[in-house]
């Protein structure tokens, strides 16, 4: 019985040494892994799609490979409704290698603004939940997560349609003058056109017009609009429908009642 006991002793000691040595070295080698997260780049990828791109650089100078390196981003509004999410996976980062990856998250701006016009007219705070996970030595799962807020700038901040002023144009038609103004707080420029439809109180289209807009970031924009309206169709109240069309953004109708 002495020999089997001795064998168990030797085997146990060897396995303990391997286990502790492996885990200690795997954890200790984390100090030699360098992570670089550059500032996120925000831009418009295609029509209505905003692209948030984060460059991630991992320099693995540790003793082991890194497995399943994953970055995940979830963006919520202040009510907790998920706006978008994105995930990037690097299956293996071999030891001694440097890997650069781009973590991309796409937000459909048009959908966002159609669902909640608050984002079109008011600045807001978006909540971001960021998770970075990996398997140290391809065995030990480690995950870091954090929450932070990012400001959202409204493209049509403080959008105002002034009172409509009527002037006689000819015997049958009248000129309707009004001005529209806003401040572009968005991270992108608003270069395009605004289509305006004027409706009477009986929801009959009485006139339409178009004006161009050029509003770069953080700049105010004011435009005067002149519409020729049939005098017979003018009512005391009604509504205006506005369609915004830029290279990347198409939004509308935005309905503004007048009286």
């Amino acid at each position: 019985m002495i020999i089997p006991i001795r064998m168990i002793s030797i085997a146990t000691t060897i396995f303990w040494l391997i286990l502790i040595g492996f885990y200690a070295s795997a954890v200790y080698s984390v100090k030699d892994i360098h992570f670089g997260f550059e500032d996120p780049q925000v831009g418009m990828a295609s029509e209505n799609n905003m692209l948030i791109s984060l460059s991630i650089n991992v320099d693995n100078k540790g003793y082991y490979n890194i497995g399943s390196f994953q970055t995940s981003t979830k963006i919520h509004d202040k009510e907790g409704f998920m706006i978008t999410q994105g995930s990037t996976l690097i299956p293996v980062i071999e030891k001694g290698r440097q890997v650069t990856a781009f973590h991309n998250v796409t937000v459909n701006v048009s959908d966002l603004m159609q669902n909640n016009q608050e984002y079109l007219f008011n600045d807001a705070e978006l909540k971001v939940h960021e998770i970075v996970g990996m398997e140290l030595a391809e065995i030990i799962p480690v995950q870091a997560s954090t929450n932070f807020s990012v400001p959202w700038g409204a493209p049509l901040y403080n959008f105002t349609l002034d009172e409509i002023k009527y002037e006689a144009h000819n015997l049958t038609h009248t000129t309707a003058n009004f001005s529209l103004s806003f401040e572009n707080h968005a991270f992108f420029s608003l270069d395009g056109s605004i289509q305006i439809y004027l409706y009477s109180s009986t929801n009959v289209l009485i006139s339409e017009g178009q004006t161009t807009i050029e509003a770069s970031q953080q700049t105010p924009c004011q435009k005067c609009v002149e519409l020729i309206v049939p005098t017979a169709g003018i009512t005391e109240d009604g509504h205006v429908e506005v369609f915004l069309s830029t290279i990347f953004l198409k939004i509308g109708p935005l309905v503004f009642p007048f009286d």
């Binding site: 286990l19 995950q143 954090t146």
Partner: peptide, 21 residues
Amino acid sequence: NINLTVNLQLFLVVAMLLSLL
């Protein structure tokens, strides 16, 4: 502001088996 989670379940299982031994 960072919450770090390390999963050492495999280590725990192996260590417990060795201790049981």
